[in-house]
Structure formats: structure tokens, C-alpha cells
Computed example of a mutant assay.
Amino acid sequence: MTNPVLVEVVRSGFTESAHRGSVVVTAPDGTVRLATGDVTSPMFPRSSNKPLQAVGMLHSGLSYDGADLALACGSHSGEPGHTERVAAMLAAAGLDESALACPPAYPLDETSMHAAAGPLRVTMNCSGKHAAMLATCVAAGWPTDGYEDPAHPLQKAIANAVVSLTGEPIAATGVDGCGAPLFAFSLTGLARSFGRLTQAAPGSDERRVADAMRAHPWLVAGTDREDTRVMKTVPGLLSKVGAEAVWAMSLPDGTALALKLDDGTKRGCAPLGVAVLRHLGVDVSELADLAAPAVLGGGREVGRLRVSWSAP
């Protein structure tokens, strides 16, 4: 394991804290091109694994493409355009919100949150994935009850897809915040899987996922969210953020990256992700506010986050 990367919080010229993390970049052939920190130990990728889960669903008979498939891969903000489409996905499968196993939650979008009458399952950020899981069960003739159980045929099919895409065995199975199974593998496996999505043959299940997400970035996240912004800004980029400070991306040629901050603090992800893209020669000039987010004091800027890292 090499020295970790640091995202420093600089307030009034003084470094008050730093987020330690790890970064891996894989080449189009899946070999490690750059690594710093721990990129081989298993970790839970959280929502960064949604594109992999979607591949398992397509392998099992899910017929989604385009917008619905993008939402199945997303962690949406609960804006009206998100929740209305999730409701339509459920209705098309002959189901309603009561079939969702994800917990009720308020929208992530602040405007939508203030307009909400209360927390709902459909406004939970993972409801698109859960609606797709239910639709997959209907298509495959599997029971919808208990679809979130690791022993369910759906979750076994998803686990097989994860193993195939990462090139690693699943080290542990946990429960994600949305209630669905969560599989542990390395940052290197996560990066490698994203590279395989963008390099896959047109029309393949893997490429359908990558193409849907890149064509509909707002459905993957929402207004002003990181995934939305970077996919709109960088042509052909595939991106998916996960909770606990995980982020995976792939360029069109299959060069991919994955990062994780040890303390799970999300605020350090954006500057680190943009720094790695810049190191790879990507034009990130339109992402300056993500590259060095402001630190506020009394409502005014008193510092910045900065990445302290000398790329090998």
C-alpha cells in the first residue's frame, strides 16, 4: 500500500483537517496504471455499484433502455421528474409504491424536500433501482416478495454480474442503506468494472448501461449533482458517486478511476475526482467550483479545499 492522498481543508490560511483516501486508475486492458493508498482491500462501493447491479438485471430479462435504465442506475434527488418516472416504471410492471422495499425518505433536492408532505418510498434516492429490481422479477417470473433478500434469484444473478465485471470474488455481503444487498470488493475491481462498461460492444447489456447513463445524466443524479455535472461537461464520461465518499468514473476509451476517502466524508470527493481527471489530461476548466470548493465562515468564504497529492 502506498501513501494515501490527502484532501486538505484550509481555513483562513491554516490547514484545519485533512481527509485521507485512496485512488486507482486502470488502463483500458484492466491493468493498474496508477495507485495510491489502499486499492486492493475489500470495501463497500455503496451506490457506485448500481451500474453493475443494472447489468445483472438486464442479464435476467429487464428490458429497460434509455431514461428508465439511467434511473435504475441512479441515486436521484427526488425531483418531480424522478419520482413521476419511478411511479411509471412501477405501474408498467403492474405494481405500485407499496411493493418497494426501500425505506421512506425525503427528497435530496432541497426544493422538493420542502414541498414534500412527508417521507415516501418513491422519493427515496434508490427507488429507481428498486423499481427496476421489481420489474426484473416480473420479467423473469420470480416472486417480488423478498426481492431484496441475498438468497433471492435476482440478487444471485446480480452477484454473478458483479463478479464478472470486477474480476474478483465477493469478499462480503452487507445491506445497503436502501435495504438491498451490498457486495464488497476492491477499488481496483470497481475501476476495472467501469472500464468494461464503456468498452463493451454496442448493444451489449454492459454498453446499454453506460450509454443510458451518459445520455441521461440528470436521471442518474439530479440538478447540480456531481454525476450530472461531470457527465454533462466531459464528453463520453461515465460517472457514479456512492455514499461513504466513493466515486467511480470511466473515460470512453476504458481508462477508469475509483476513489474512496477513509472517513466517508463526501466533501472531499469532488476535488479529488476532478484532480484525477485533470491528471489524465481531461479538460476540467468548467468544474473549477468542484475542484476547490469554498470553506465558509459566517456565510462568507474563508478558505478552500485542496488536494495534496503528487501523482506517481
Rank of each mutant, 00 (worst) to 15 (best):
C102A: 12
C102G: 07
P103E: 15
A105Y: 09
A105E: 15
A105C: 13
Y106S: 10
Y106G: 07
Y106P: 07
Y106V: 12
P107F: 11
L108T: 15
D109Y: 07
E110W: 12
T111A: 15
H114R: 15
A115Q: 13
A115G: 07
A116M: 10
A116P: 06
A116F: 10
A117E: 12
A117S: 14
G118D: 05
G118Y: 12
P119D: 15
L120S: 03
L120V: 01
L120W: 11
V122C: 06
V122G: 07
T123Y: 08
T123G: 03
N125C: 08
C126F: 06
C126P: 06
S127K: 14
G128K: 02
G128T: 00
G128E: 01
K129G: 05
K129H: 09
K129C: 08
H130F: 02
H130K: 11
H130N: 11
H130P: 09
A132W: 02
M133W: 09
M133Q: 07
M133Y: 02
M133L: 09
M133F: 02
M133H: 11
L134C: 07
A135W: 00
A135K: 00
A135D: 02
T136Q: 04
C137Q: 04
C137A: 04
C137N: 01
V138W: 03
A140Q: 10
A140Y: 02
G141H: 03
G141S: 03
W142I: 05
W142P: 01
P143M: 11
T144M: 04
T144R: 02
D145H: 07
Y147K: 03
D149N: 15
D149G: 10
P150R: 14
H152F: 01
P153L: 13
L154C: 02
L154E: 00
Q155D: 01
Q155V: 01
K156N: 00
A157L: 02
A157T: 00
I158E: 03
I158A: 00
A159F: 01
N160V: 05
V162K: 01
V163G: 01
V163E: 05
S164L: 05
T166Q: 02
G167D: 14
P169E: 14
P169G: 11
P169V: 14
I170P: 01
I170E: 02
I170R: 11
A171Q: 00
A171Y: 02
A171F: 12
G174W: 05
V175S: 15
D176M: 05
D176V: 00
D176Q: 13
G177K: 12
C178W: 04
P181W: 03
P181M: 10
F183Q: 15
F183L: 07
A184I: 00
A184P: 06
F185L: 11
F185Q: 10
S186Y: 12
S186I: 09
G189S: 06
G189Y: 08
L190K: 12
A191G: 14
S193W: 10
S193R: 14
F194V: 09
F194N: 06
F194L: 14
F194H: 13
F194W: 10
G195A: 07
G195R: 13
L197G: 08
T198K: 06
A201M: 14
A201C: 07
P202K: 08
P202N: 11
P202A: 04
S204L: 06
S204P: 10
S204V: 04
